[in-house]
């Protein structure tokens, strides 16, 4: 891999887009986070742990994490019909599963933790940013967790492995692999892949994804510290 390779938007293979992370942006929610990454705009809110009204869904041994990923009708080029579709249902499930391993759900039996990820504008990589925002919002809601969760996408564009695919690279690239990790223990809680990668390319992509996640992890910690400094 030559480091001189410059991507279409001027980034190097291992450069993330400009990122802005903010914590505590909503007044009513117990915890919230706002993320801008390139033109992506995502807002995440957490309510709970709170009493679960539907008793049949309640668990006696822990809280139920209810996670909704939702995209605004104006978030994409072609207007998206409001309400859930197959894509957002799948992503909601995966994000929920990505986050569950790191929360001490057993501390709050018979309750629910409601997590909403609202994509206001999408430009590739919203599921990863959703996970990054979700873990920030959960931390903001002071829900005990083992670690923050970091996530980013890696992919293959023009036969090169690159970090944080833009919308165009996602569409035209040869592979796309979003990953979420617990940065302290290096456990993977979420991984998807579509496209073609050889075994070596996969190893290289995984290494690059870990670097990206670790970098985002630092940004996440800074965002949380910043909120408490302001207070």
């Amino acid at each position: 891999m030559t480091t001189e390779y410059v991507r279409e938007d001027g980034r190097l293979f291992n450069t993330l887009r400009n990122m802005k992370l903010e914590v505590g942006v909503l007044n009513n929610a117990d915890g919230s986070a706002y993320i801008e990454c390139g033109n992506n705009k995502i807002i995440v809110g957490v309510y709970g742990p709170k009493e679960l009204y539907s008793k049949k869904h309640a668990k006696v041994d822990g809280a139920v994490l209810r996670c909704k990923y939702n995209m605004a009708p104006f978030a994409v080029n072609e207007r998206k019909r409001p309400g859930p579709d197959r894509r957002s249902v799948e992503i909601s499930k995966l994000i929920s599963e990505a986050i569950t391993p790191c929360i001490f759900l057993e501390k709050y039996p018979r309750t629910s933790i409601d997590l909403s990820i609202e994509v206001l504008e999408a430009e590739g990589g919203t599921r990863c940013l959703g996970i990054v925002g979700a873990s920030l919002a959960l931390a903001d809601a002071e829900i005990p967790m083992k670690d923050l969760i970091s996530a980013c996408a890696v992919g293959k564009v023009d036969d090169r492995i690159v970090l944080d695919l833009s919308e165009k690279e996602d569409k035209e690239g040869q592979a796309d692999m979003p990953i979420a990790i617990l940065p302290r223990t290096n456990e993977i809680t979420f991984i998807q892949m579509d496209g073609h990668l050889s075994g070596e390319e996969f190893d290289e992509a995984l290494k690059l994804a870990f670097e990206g996640c670790k970098f985002i992890y630092e940004l996440q910690k800074q965002a949380l510290i910043k909120k408490h400094e302001e207070m």
Partner: peptide
């Protein structure tokens, strides 16, 4: 015109 009262806005 379509309005969505998002679950993040209020409990």
């Amino acid at each position: 015109t379509n309005t969505e009262l998002l679950a993040i806005a209020s409990k």
